[in-house]
Design a protein around this nucleic acid. Sequence first.
DNA 1: CTTGACACCGAACAGGTGTTCGTGGTATAA
DNA 2: TTATACCACGAACACCTGTTCGGTGTCAAG
Lengths: 219, 219
Amino acid sequence: MGLSERQQRIYEFITKFSRDKGRPPTIREIGGHVGISSTSVVNYNLNILVREGLIQREKEVSRGLRVVGAQARSLTGELANLVQIPLLGKIAAGHPIPVPEAGLAPYDGETLSLTRDLIQEHEGLFALQVKGNSMIDALINDGDIVVMKKQETALNGEMVAVWLKDEKETTLKRIYREKNRIRLQPMNPTMKPFFADPRNVEVQGKVILVVRQLQKTPA
Amino acid sequence: MGLSERQQRIYEFITKFSRDKGRPPTIREIGGHVGISSTSVVNYNLNILVREGLIQREKEVSRGLRVVGAQARSLTGELANLVQIPLLGKIAAGHPIPVPEAGLAPYDGETLSLTRDLIQEHEGLFALQVKGNSMIDALINDGDIVVMKKQETALNGEMVAVWLKDEKETTLKRIYREKNRIRLQPMNPTMKPFFADPRNVEVQGKVILVVRQLQKTPA
DNA sequence: CTTGACACCGAACAGGTGTTCGTGGTATAA
DNA sequence: TTATACCACGAACACCTGTTCGGTGTCAAG
């Protein structure tokens, strides 16, 4: 038996609402969005959807409603678009950064989920939270999260995290190899570059992405 | 800060309940299963879980509760943890920014998918790509993507996009209301604030998140 | 001792929510 | 015509649900 147009719209709304909000809608929320003024009409049509096997209902509980099919549909597609990045710790000026171990021990700590379209490379990724204002010349603030790719070398112009052995300092800069030295260029073009001896710099990884959450930073 | 045993049990119950039943529990359902007689105590502990970033709540909505983060990986979980943000266009110093229309016309352009744990607010969100270096004092670079929430007012200390009518200029700053003026504070603490007449500033929205993709920026 | 933060309890309130009932319109079949 | 599903509306009811408020006890800092 087919569905009326109204019933289709109800079904689609329930699906969308549940996905967006993480909870099923109430009868009145359905009515409001589908254009039904009476709750009993919504109730009536919901019972038809139950009869058709499209949803399940639990009696006398608020939002006692659930879409039954619908799972495997676009789910796998969206899910495959996610990449999980381990949040390894903090990055601060005065300390070496934690890098992922070569061992393939399954990481079980905190992770950061990002959609794949934000990231071009997917191997050896890890994330760190910036501590302190020392990297402000790289336009990176206290509390920012940097997503990095582990690598020991870098191409000219790449934004890298380097460990300066003599200074015992971690910093984020764009790297340029010159004749007998390495130029570390702050991202902020108004600031002057820093020059270092090649033996003094140790590339820890390349910065892929920077994420700043504004709300968590108290004024 | 760690969780008390009670808070852990609440969190686990919410996770399990949501997965099993397809809807979040009510406050009283939580209390009944965790062994708390008073709804206010459940409410109290729920707010702590929100503060710790483990769940999100929607005010005055039944079952307005949602588990966030890597744990809630039920089938529907991950998908429900994604939020789609319309990418409305560019933001540049010399132009007003595009803001979402009040009409609920379904947006069909480009969107940005982010996981919910990166974002605390979910209503009226939109994203813009920064054009030009004019916002470097806000630690925002050319090409960065800013996620904003549409709002016409702002609390002190919030990072907002404002349109300066006289200057015909858009800028991103922290906003502070003072006696007869408005102080716009660059994010970079080494830079000086800008003062403006209240009639001259028009708040366009609050900055929620900043994302910088390093690879796409040519050296 | 006093103060304040923290955790908890019970009660009450306003509004949300599922359910039910009476009513009416519109087709199709007898 | 009458009968019968089917679909819809509005109102009322009883219970559910989130919120808020006053109060209690504990514990560490002052």
